[in-house]
Amino acid sequence: MIIDWFVIAAQAFNFLLLIWLMKRFLYKPILKAIDAREKLIAEKLADADRKEAAAQAEQKEFQQKNEEFEQRHAELLSQATSEAESQRRRLLNEASEEADNLRAKRQEMLIHDAQKLDRAIGLRTQEEVFAIARKALADLSSDSLEERICEVFTRRLRDMGSEEKERLIKALSAQSGTAQLNSAFELSQAQRNNMQKTLGELFPTEIRLKFKTVPELIGGIELVANGHKIAWNIADYIASLEESVDRLIKEGRSNEP
């Protein structure tokens, strides 16, 4: 076997050349590609880590916001509930007050109507009584109702007790003998003279009478001196009648369902 040094040198050169070629065309490009891929993977992993961290941060933020929202929601709901409750109470109170006011007004109106009715009944009764009395008196005798009233009042004065007479004298003397004679109707001159004459007979001092027509006396006549009064009228009878009518009306209302 011969060792050929030229071939050895040539093969050594060839091998070194092959090393260079392989480095140039194989190892460097392959390792470069592997490094690039590893870098890419590392970047992707780092990016994924960053994204995960960001996602976790966002999740935390979202949870926090959600909790805050829930808390705020609960607060608002509680506030709204309490406000609604207070509003309901206020409205109920207002409605109750309004209903009370309406009821009071209605009651007042009813009372007013009843009073009005009472007054109307009284006036009507007076008119009716007067008409009946006048008709009866006209049928039975020649006296008018006014004359009969004056006559009754004169009799009343004459039948007056001593104590009452004393109080009237004191009242007249306090007003220096002046008295007022109120009547529901206009007295004729003869009736006025008759009254003056009756008083002159009953009392020792001279009495000056002032005549005044007062329709509210309801068919009556009264003598007023310094707050003291002697009267006759049919208002008492009418009041008694009104009382009995009122009683009847109330009984009718209580029997209503």
């Binding site: 060792i3 071939v7 050895i8 040198a9 093969q11 060839n14 091998f15 070194l16």
Partner: peptide, 11 residues
């Protein structure tokens, strides 16, 4: 070839 293996060994 021994020349080749010697060349490689020398390398």
């Amino acid at each position: 070839s021994l020349s080749t293996t010697i060349a490689l060994a020398l390398c």
